[in-house]
Computed example of a mutant assay.
Amino acid sequence: MGRVVLVTGVANPFASVAARRLAEIGEAGDISRVIGIDTVVPPGDLGGTKFVRADIRTPVIGKVLAVEHVDTVVHLDVNPHRTRTGGSGSKELNVIGTMQLLAACQRSSTVAKFVLGSSSAVYGTSPRDPAMWKESMLARGGVRSGFPKDIVEVESYVRGFARRRPDVIITTLRASQILDPAMRSPLGDYFAAPVLPSSLGFDPRLQFLHLEDALAVLTESVLEDRPGTFNLCADGVVLLSQAARRLGRPVIPLPPLGLAIAARRVIRAAGADVPPDLHRLLTYGRVLDNAALREIFGYEPMYTSAEVFEQFRQQIRPGILASFGGTA
Results as ranks from 00 to 15, higher is better:
residue 89 G to K: 04
residue 269 A to F: 07
residue 146 G to K: 06
residue 191 F to S: 10
residue 318 P to M: 06
residue 143 V to F: 03
residue 95 V to R: 05
residue 190 Y to I: 12
residue 221 S to W: 03
residue 320 I to G: 00
residue 228 G to A: 05
residue 303 Y to R: 14
residue 293 L to N: 07
residue 98 T to L: 03
residue 60 V to T: 14
residue 270 A to L: 03
residue 116 L to M: 14
residue 282 L to W: 02
residue 200 L to T: 08
residue 109 S to Q: 14
residue 307 E to Y: 01
residue 302 M to E: 13
residue 131 A to L: 15
residue 28 A to P: 01
residue 117 G to Y: 08
residue 274 V to P: 00
residue 239 L to M: 12
residue 69 H to W: 01
residue 22 L to Y: 09
residue 7 V to A: 06
residue 18 A to S: 08
residue 325 G to E: 14
residue 145 S to R: 13
residue 244 A to D: 01
residue 173 L to T: 07
residue 33 R to T: 06
residue 136 S to L: 01
residue 68 E to V: 02
residue 136 S to D: 08
residue 134 K to L: 14
residue 294 R to L: 10
residue 77 D to M: 12
residue 213 D to I: 12
residue 37 I to C: 12
residue 95 V to G: 02
residue 249 R to D: 05
residue 278 L to K: 04
residue 177 Q to H: 08
residue 220 E to N: 10
residue 44 G to M: 03
residue 196 L to I: 09
residue 150 D to I: 02
residue 207 Q to V: 07
residue 319 G to P: 09
residue 187 L to F: 06
residue 73 V to Q: 05
residue 310 E to C: 07
residue 71 D to C: 00
residue 320 I to V: 15
residue 2 G to R: 05
residue 290 N to P: 05
residue 52 V to C: 05
residue 92 E to N: 12
residue 324 F to K: 12
residue 136 S to F: 00
residue 146 G to I: 10
residue 236 G to C: 10
residue 104 A to C: 13
residue 225 D to L: 10
residue 265 R to H: 09
residue 23 A to Q: 04
residue 158 V to R: 04
residue 126 S to M: 04
residue 276 P to S: 14
residue 105 C to N: 08
residue 90 S to V: 00
residue 174 R to W: 02
residue 105 C to F: 07
residue 260 A to I: 00
residue 238 V to W: 00
residue 214 A to I: 01
residue 91 K to N: 08
residue 165 R to I: 05
residue 118 S to R: 03
residue 42 P to E: 12
residue 57 R to N: 04
residue 174 R to L: 11
residue 204 P to E: 02
residue 174 R to A: 07
residue 113 K to F: 01
residue 176 S to K: 11
residue 222 V to A: 03
residue 232 L to G: 08
residue 188 G to H: 10
residue 20 R to V: 09
residue 232 L to V: 15
residue 130 P to C: 11
residue 23 A to L: 04
residue 118 S to V: 07
residue 100 Q to W: 00
residue 124 G to M: 07
residue 180 D to V: 06
residue 16 S to N: 14
residue 158 V to H: 02
residue 9 G to D: 09
residue 51 F to W: 13
residue 58 T to R: 14
residue 99 M to S: 10
residue 42 P to I: 13
residue 291 A to F: 02
residue 325 G to D: 12
residue 99 M to D: 09
residue 165 R to W: 09
residue 248 G to P: 03
residue 290 N to D: 07
residue 165 R to H: 11
residue 324 F to A: 08
residue 328 A to W: 13
residue 238 V to P: 01
residue 286 R to M: 10
residue 158 V to F: 05
residue 161 F to H: 12
residue 216 A to Q: 10
residue 167 D to C: 10
residue 76 L to D: 03
residue 226 R to L: 00
residue 212 E to D: 15
residue 263 A to S: 15
